[in-house]
Simulated scan of single mutants.
Amino acid sequence: MKTLTEREIKALIHLLGDDDIKTAQIARQRLIESRQEAQPFLEDARTSLDPHVRTRVYSILERLRLDELGERFRHFAAMPSAWIDLEEGAFLIAESGYPTINRQHYRDMLDSMAQTFKERMEEQGLKGRELIEALNHYFFEELGFTGNRDNYYDADNSYLNQVLDRRLGIPISLSLVYLLIARRLRIPVVGISMPGHFLLQYNDSLFIDAFEKGQLLNRGECVQFLMTNGFGFHPAYLSPTPTRFMLVRMLTNLIQIYSTQDPDRADSLSAFRDMLTQSYAKV
């Protein structure tokens, strides 16, 4: 493809403000294709006097940023499933919404939460159900994590940094934070990706509903939920979820949210999801 000159790039940026949508879309696509040459000029155009140009330049820069993030996600997804790290994957997803996220700040936050409970766990010699009940009290009552019932479909419910900052989330994101703390403590907790709901399981016995402030369930109650909600039952529904597919489910939630309000972002996240599933299929 022919390299664009400075004059051509500036002309295309000017066309982003054209009243004819097709003309603006053609200019947009050409600028995306010429990303390396165009990006410095697009950055300058953030302050354009034309509001249409400003809005469309922001959209292009977001697309370029997500494409770059997609390359890093591709390398991550290509790793063998046993090497896929849940925390790293969650941070990559969070970066799609918050590009300047300070990972170390949030890792330190998780470390501190785990350390506080570790001291209590060791001092009191907590084990079994008593251990989980104490961890639930700490996580949901003392730290204040809770389900966001008032705004369930807020995208921030799915970004790790926002769940940690706001202490609000949906079943899978609350379970994510719980898991990351439990793993620091070497407590055997896994994710259970049931149809219609996401749970945690401790030591192959207790099921934990993070959206219901750690409500403890037995296997029969989980089966009853599945049957009552029309999913039927299959043993796989209550099997531990591989890390790769927990990330797939997190991405699916965001794709559904953005599909109408930000189709470009939804497309980028769909590509991330495809990378995870396609890499798995090649193994």
Results as ranks from 00 to 15, higher is better:
M1C: 06
A11L: 13
I13T: 05
L15C: 08
L16I: 08
A27P: 06
R30F: 01
Q39A: 12
L42A: 02
E43W: 02
E43T: 06
A45C: 06
L49S: 13
P51T: 03
P51R: 05
I60L: 06
I60K: 04
L61W: 05
L61F: 03
L66A: 03
E71T: 12
E71R: 15
R72N: 10
L86Q: 13
G89I: 03
F91G: 04
A94L: 07
P99M: 02
Y106H: 13
M109K: 15
D111F: 10
D111E: 14
S112C: 03
E119S: 10
E133P: 00
F139C: 01
E141M: 03
E142G: 03
V163Q: 10
D165K: 13
R167W: 07
L168V: 04
G169E: 12
V177E: 12
L179M: 15
L179I: 15
L180W: 06
I181Q: 04
R184P: 06
I187C: 02
P188N: 07
V189E: 05
G191H: 06
I192Y: 00
M194N: 02
Q201V: 01
S205M: 02
S205Q: 12
A210W: 08
L217R: 10
V223W: 02
F225E: 03
G230R: 07
P235Q: 07
A236C: 00
L247I: 10
L251M: 11
T252G: 09
I255K: 10
Q256H: 11
A271I: 08
M275V: 02
V283M: 13
